[in-house]
Nucleic acid binder design. Sequence first.
DNA 1: CCAGACGTTGTT
DNA 2: GTCTGG
DNA 3: CCAGACGTTGTT
DNA 4: GTCTGG
Length: 249
Amino acid sequence: MSSPTWLCSLHRRWLPTAPVSPSQPEPQPCCAAGRGRLGVMCGRYASTARRTVLLEQFQVDGDNAEDLKSPDYNVAPTKTAPVVIARAPSGGPKDADAVRQLRLFKWGRLVPFWAEDAKIGNRMVNARSERVDEKPAYRAAFKSRRCRIPVDAFYEWFETDQISEKTKKPLKQPFAFRPTDGSSLALAGLYEVWKDKTLPEDDPGALLWWSYTILTTTATNEIGRIHDRMPMAIGPDDWAQWLDPLPAS
DNA sequence: CCAGACGTTGTT
DNA sequence: GTCTGG
DNA sequence: CCAGACGTTGTT
DNA sequence: GTCTGG
């Protein structure tokens, strides 16, 4: 199938900037160094906004993120990070009206609700947006379990000509990307709720497992100069619509 | 029908 | 659960 | 994404 | 090389 109709409204202009974290090395011009090879899109990002800022910025009604540890300049797969969802308040009836909530979910290891083994989620860090509505692992979540991921910048690694003494492999230079206009950034994501049914109810591991994945899309702008894929950003005008079900097509 | 997968990027 | 491959 | 682990039999 | 854990 072709790209979803909401794709075009989500494009925005990007430029490489200095890494967000002071501990990151200085960036180099994108195409001047190395061979232009880059790693997987959107494998790390920075989430630095404080909880109170996120609550206001995303007009959140339900706050389930009291344990948020912020800032985190190095959010990696399996780590817990804040996401915004629209869902019936936890603890209440499932058919209650959806409320916008800030929640702390695990990135990656997205385990579909039907899975018997959590291992299936091992590589579900990203989901291609082009076919996310038909892929068995993502289809259900795409229909009813979407999330926005507040992000300040995302990182990419650039393989340079320098060889590491230690590993004898090319050194990789991290870059940070964020909107040039300083606007806040939300990535499009899906989440899943999974429970290990092989464990007895009283086992600590039988708790619900909440995880999310980040959608990727074609990079048609400045990022496309160095990599053909990028995480899908949602503009503020589309934040509400992304969490709501799509109109029937 | 059953059995098995269910994912992405990048590499050559 | 649902799709694909045999 | 990166960093780090990865395994068995049988016994120099 | 490939998988796991963070």
